[in-house]
Amino acid sequence: MTIEISKEARAEAVASIERYFRENMEEPIGNVTAGALLGYFIEEIGPLIYNRAVLDVQERLQKQVGDLDIEVNEDPFQYWRKFDKARKGK
């Protein structure tokens, strides 16, 4: 699965890379080079982050599904119990 980002997000990411190089590296980086670096990171490291996020979501969903029986459980045969409780209260 190819990871893609919107044009707006890509432009912001490229600007962020350029700023990072300007403020933290000895040499600035150009727009084209920053775009290529971003493409490299998305293709090379993006799947690692994406897969971790998918695992996190799966774990959370499995826990929520596991809790369903507790959250939505209804005890059967409750009709007569409400009458029995009312009679004991008299």
Rank of each mutant, 00 (worst) to 15 (best):
E4R: 14
K7A: 12
E8F: 04
A9S: 14
R10M: 08
R10A: 11
R10K: 15
A11M: 06
E12A: 13
A13Y: 02
A13M: 06
V14G: 05
I17S: 03
I17T: 01
I17P: 02
I17A: 01
R19T: 07
Y20W: 10
F21P: 03
F21I: 02
F21V: 03
R22M: 04
N24G: 02
N24T: 10
M25H: 11
M25I: 07
M25V: 07
M25Y: 07
E27P: 01
P28Y: 00
I29H: 03
I29R: 04
N31C: 03
A34M: 02
A34N: 00
A34R: 00
A36D: 09
A36E: 15
L37Q: 07
G39V: 02
Y40V: 09
F41N: 10
I42F: 00
I42M: 10
I42P: 00
E43G: 08
E43P: 00
E44L: 05
I45C: 05
I45S: 07
L48W: 04
L48K: 11
L48M: 10
Y50G: 08
N51P: 01
N51E: 15
N51K: 15
V54I: 13
L55A: 12
L55E: 15
L55Y: 09
V57M: 06
E59M: 10
E59I: 06
R60P: 01
Q62A: 15
Q64W: 05
Q64I: 11
Q64K: 14
Q64P: 03
V65D: 04
V65A: 11
G66N: 12
G66E: 12
D69R: 10
I70Y: 09
E71S: 11
V72M: 11
V72L: 15
N73W: 12
E74P: 03
D75A: 09
D75G: 03
D75L: 12
P76N: 03
Q78K: 07
Y79E: 15
Y79Q: 08
W80L: 13
W80A: 10
R81W: 06
R81S: 08
K82G: 00
K82Y: 05
K85D: 12
A86I: 11
A86Q: 12
R87V: 14
K88Q: 14
G89R: 13
K90H: 12
